[in-house]
């Protein structure tokens, strides 16, 4: 088939990066950054998730734009849920 076959080297590289990311998350959590601890932790998690999606789930190599549309719309809908309801929680007077 015309499917893209990734090299073993790439898979191992991504795997090591993900493991390093995990260690990094734990290490950074111990450094006092105030609210930025959460920002950093979620940023690392997002980078890790993106790597999994792009390389392990082959989204980088797919010719199908639709896959990306599906992922992005699901994330947009999650953003709608969080943003509009937090608009309520953040502005309550009680």
């Amino acid at each position: 088939m015309s499917e893209h076959v990734s090299s073993l080297k790439l898979y191992i590289g991504i795997w090591i990066t993900l493991l390093i990311g995990t260690v990094l998350t734990v290490v950074v959590a111990k450094i006092p950054l105030g609210p930025f601890n959460a920002v950093v932790a979620l940023s690392i998690a997002t980078i890790k998730a993106t790597l999994v999606v792009l390389f392990f789930m082959h989204v980088k190599y797919t010719h199908e734009k639709l896959t990306r549309v599906v992922i992005i719309s699901a994330l947009c809908w999650l953003a709608i849920l969080l943003a509009l309801s937090m608009a309520d929680y953040a502005t309550r007077l009680w």
Binding site: S85, A87, T91
Partner: peptide, 13 residues
């Protein structure tokens, strides 16, 4: 949230 107008959500929301 228009189902919740009288339920106590914030006025701005």
């Amino acid at each position: 949230a228009h189902h919740m107008f009288v339920a106590g959500i914030s006025l701005y929301a």
